[in-house]
């Protein structure tokens, strides 16, 4: 069987769409973040890029852990942003605004994701 969810409900479609968006954000973060690290710049981006990509992939597989990982990454991002620019509004904007909006979307998807995962594990158990 495929590791990814096959959406049949609007909620599942939303989760898959969100997961794709998160992967699309994570990949360039990881890729460019690696170059930045090699050029002597911040390590934050490559680490967070890998985490976010993994989070997206896990979400696409219907795993709650993906959502939790994304939320954790955003939490780390807030801490890192405060560390890097303090409480400066313009400075915080690119660092936390977009990711936090997405985090809200992820939070909204969380119940559906939980249900899906429970149903999935139930069905797996039944098959077993």
């Amino acid at each position: 069987m495929s590791a990814f969810i096959k959406p049949q409900t609007p909620a599942a479609w939303a989760i898959l769409g969100l997961a794709v968006v998160i992967v699309l954000l994570g990949l360039p973060l990881a890729y460019m973040g690696a170059e930045l690290m090699f050029l002597g710049g911040s390590w934050y981006y490559v680490i967070i890029g890998i985490a976010v990509t993994a989070a997206g992939v896990l979400m696409a597989m219907g795993r709650t852990m993906g959502a939790m990982l994304y939320l954790a990454a955003v939490g780390v991002t807030w801490l890192w942003a405060f560390w890097e620019v303090g409480f400066d509004g313009w400075g915080l904007l690119p660092r936390v605004f977009g990711p936090s909006i997405l985090a809200i979307a992820v939070l909204l998807c969380l119940p559906a994701l939980r249900r899906m995962e429970n149903a999935h594990s139930t069905s797996v158990r039944e098959v077993a």
């Binding site: 973060l29 313009w90 400075g91 690119p94 605004f97 977009g98």
Partner: peptide, 9 residues
């Protein structure tokens, strides 16, 4: 700077 972490990166 940028609008998002990506363009900032």
């Amino acid at each position: 700077w940028g609008m998002s972490p990506i363009d900032q990166l």
